[in-house]
Nucleic acid binder design. Sequence first.
DNA 1: CCCTGAGTTGATAACGATTATCAGGATGCT
DNA 2: AGCATCCTGATAATCGTTATCAACTCAGGG
Lengths: 137, 137
Amino acid sequence: MAQRNTWQRERVREALADAPGFVSAQALHALLRDENTGIGLATVYRALAGLAAQGDADSLQSPDGEALYRACTSTGHHHHLICRSCGRTVEIEATDVEQWAHDTAEKHGFTRAEHVVDIFGVCATCTAAAENERAGD
Amino acid sequence: MAQRNTWQRERVREALADAPGFVSAQALHALLRDENTGIGLATVYRALAGLAAQGDADSLQSPDGEALYRACTSTGHHHHLICRSCGRTVEIEATDVEQWAHDTAEKHGFTRAEHVVDIFGVCATCTAAAENERAGD
DNA sequence: CCCTGAGTTGATAACGATTATCAGGATGCT
DNA sequence: AGCATCCTGATAATCGTTATCAACTCAGGG
């Protein structure tokens, strides 16, 4: 058998599902360690890599070079709208963009085109919170 | 005075302009060290950060977490079509996508939206080269 | 139920990229 | 030329990630 069932893997999967948006492996590890589980950092990385490989998780590079992961409900190809402040994530579809990306690549003679399309912003909640803070200036 | 002119900075700017596409800071440093200049790694990083801050260079995260830089001709906002094989880069405009990104963010209540839109593919030349190689299977 | 074997785990070391530190050197202005 | 300031470069430090390896645990057979 090539894959065994361990509570650690399950735990990572759950924690990932619980997270509102993208989380770093480090954050996930800290989270799990708080719960009581003496789970190891390496294990979290391994579980995450496994989930990503199976398509159960999505990964992207944060602007500061950290790898972020997220449990992905929709199996198909899709993109993300990510709150820069709280990490909340909305899955979005972008048929037009897919088409555009494909066309653009083709127009320039590129093959095997893949694209990275993600929008970072500040969600309504965080925007409101920021406004309140600014009021105190 | 806040900014001084040094041959190191100039050198980095040139090397960046010479590069056909995105290059990592490390690669750039190696390149410059070959030329004869005993330029330091830290200096390359500093120069690169400076160029990026001035908008003379663009930076993005490679899939393996390295920061890549490229001299940017067009000052405005634009995106890239990057050859996964040889690194050649084509600057592309995507007015529609800009609009779409903005609309999508707004629709979900997100503010201060920025987006990452890049297409990775294999350029015509490299595709042809790959075909030739496959012929030898 | 216990034994056995292979996949897993977790602590730590190794690694690669990037940033901070700091003494010495170069630059621009006078 | 003189000087203050900024810059450079070597190194150490930091941070995230991966590899290593002995101990452990899960799954199946006796």
